[in-house]
Simulated assay, not measured.
Amino acid sequence: MALRAATLPWFSWRVSAAVSISGTGGPYRTREGLAALSRFDGSHADMLRIVRLLTDNFPAIDDHVELRLRDACNPGHYRAVAAAGLATPFESAPKHRDDYPRSLRTVRTPLALVSGRQDNLVEPDWAHRIAEHAPSCKVYEIDARHSPNISDPETTAALLLTIVGELEGGAATHDHAAPGTSR
């Protein structure tokens, strides 16, 4: 959402900077990842499978699985999540041309893309492919899967503090490694 919002003139003026952790803005997701996330049988074991697709193993994984199971049982939650995969009655309507990520070429808002090196849900080079179109974009890599904020919040927070410091300082390079990691 942050990347797409940055391209909207009526919204972009409200954003001073944006960071996307594994969020591609739509493209560059893998078919295998989409298929694996689109099915859920309601069991603890299957929720654990989904969480393991998103995260590395971490000490509180069982608690996180239980939390997600409780959330999935909330009225409307599962339907809302599952609805993303449903066909709409508007499929036959003329489709507008989606210029994203090329539309990022005019964005001046500082953008940061955080890419997990072990993320199998998106294509490995997604962040660099987006950055090719966005002159205000920097790419940061982290040794993690899709959701490092869940399985390694300390490293993710340290990286975010680094990013914010660089955005505020106006650093000009385009590739960065997370603190404590190498390229």
Rank of each mutant, 00 (worst) to 15 (best):
residue 27 P to M: 07
residue 118 Q to N: 11
residue 92 S to T: 10
residue 63 D to E: 15
residue 135 P to H: 05
residue 7 T to Y: 08
residue 47 M to N: 05
residue 32 E to D: 09
residue 71 D to S: 09
residue 102 R to A: 15
residue 150 I to H: 02
residue 102 R to H: 14
residue 128 H to M: 07
residue 37 L to Y: 06
residue 95 K to D: 09
residue 85 G to T: 05
residue 37 L to K: 06
residue 107 V to N: 03
residue 160 L to F: 02
residue 129 R to E: 13
residue 181 T to K: 08
residue 54 L to T: 03
residue 128 H to A: 12
residue 20 S to H: 07
residue 110 P to R: 03
residue 133 H to W: 01
residue 63 D to C: 08
residue 50 I to K: 13
residue 181 T to D: 15
residue 159 L to R: 03
residue 169 G to F: 03
residue 108 R to A: 13
residue 153 P to Q: 13
residue 99 D to F: 10
residue 128 H to C: 07
residue 139 V to C: 03
residue 176 H to M: 05
residue 139 V to F: 02
residue 51 V to I: 14
residue 3 L to I: 09
residue 152 D to R: 15
residue 71 D to I: 03
residue 27 P to S: 07
residue 164 V to L: 13
residue 9 P to F: 09
residue 86 L to P: 00
residue 136 S to F: 01
residue 54 L to V: 04
residue 154 E to C: 09
residue 116 G to V: 00
residue 93 A to L: 14
residue 58 F to Y: 15
residue 91 E to P: 01
residue 11 F to C: 13
residue 79 R to A: 15
residue 160 L to R: 02
residue 10 W to D: 14
residue 11 F to H: 11
residue 93 A to K: 06
residue 23 G to F: 03
residue 171 A to R: 10
residue 53 L to A: 05
residue 181 T to P: 04
residue 76 G to Q: 10
residue 79 R to L: 13
residue 36 A to N: 12
residue 19 V to S: 08
residue 94 P to C: 12
residue 143 D to K: 11
residue 55 T to D: 02
residue 136 S to H: 03
residue 161 L to Q: 09
residue 169 G to R: 12
residue 146 H to L: 04
residue 89 P to T: 13
residue 165 G to F: 00
residue 26 G to T: 12
residue 94 P to Q: 11
residue 9 P to C: 06
residue 43 S to G: 09
residue 77 H to E: 15
residue 131 A to N: 02
residue 115 S to Q: 10
residue 30 T to K: 04
residue 76 G to P: 09
residue 71 D to P: 00
residue 112 A to K: 00
